[in-house]
Amino acid sequence: MASRSMRQERDGHTLQPTALVHEAFLRLVDQRSANFESRRHFFAVAATLMRRILVDHARRSQADKRGYHMVVPLQNHMDAAAPEATHEVLEIDEALKRLATLDARQAQVVELRYFAGLSVEETAAVLDVSERTVKRDWAVARAFLHRALDPALER
């Protein structure tokens, strides 16, 4: 019989996938001054916030690796597995910023789909465009990001 006082959060019960996402979401609803005219605005802001959180944390964890004085098994583990994914987030963020200067909506599609996990249909609703437009934007943005992330492809 399991006998521990606290247990691992199970996916089914938490906001997916982690406490991290709780934050994004909660930042949102706790912005009492924020005035969401509509759901669409809500989703768009949520997506941007999620991106910011991931980027913030990626930056911080990079900084942390440079000798935070707390030494813990978990930290080591994370060190071993980590650099790629967190580093990647930062690169994606940079690339997205560049994309946004070329086409703001395409960058937004990435935020909504990749960071907030919205479907094509939902994204179309948030941005008030057709699904075809979303698909097209996504195709372009994705290629752009792939190119930006792969040094071999970047010219």
């Binding site: 406490a19 991290l20 964890s61 707390m70 978990l74 583990h77 994370m78 990647e88 994705r142 990001l145």
Partner: peptide, 24 residues
Amino acid sequence: FDDTAMSRLTPEQRAGLAPPDALV
């Protein structure tokens, strides 16, 4: 990019992303 940004991380990474004030 087929999944979301979050899903690219391992559970440890995700847990670890919430910052590191762990006790030993």
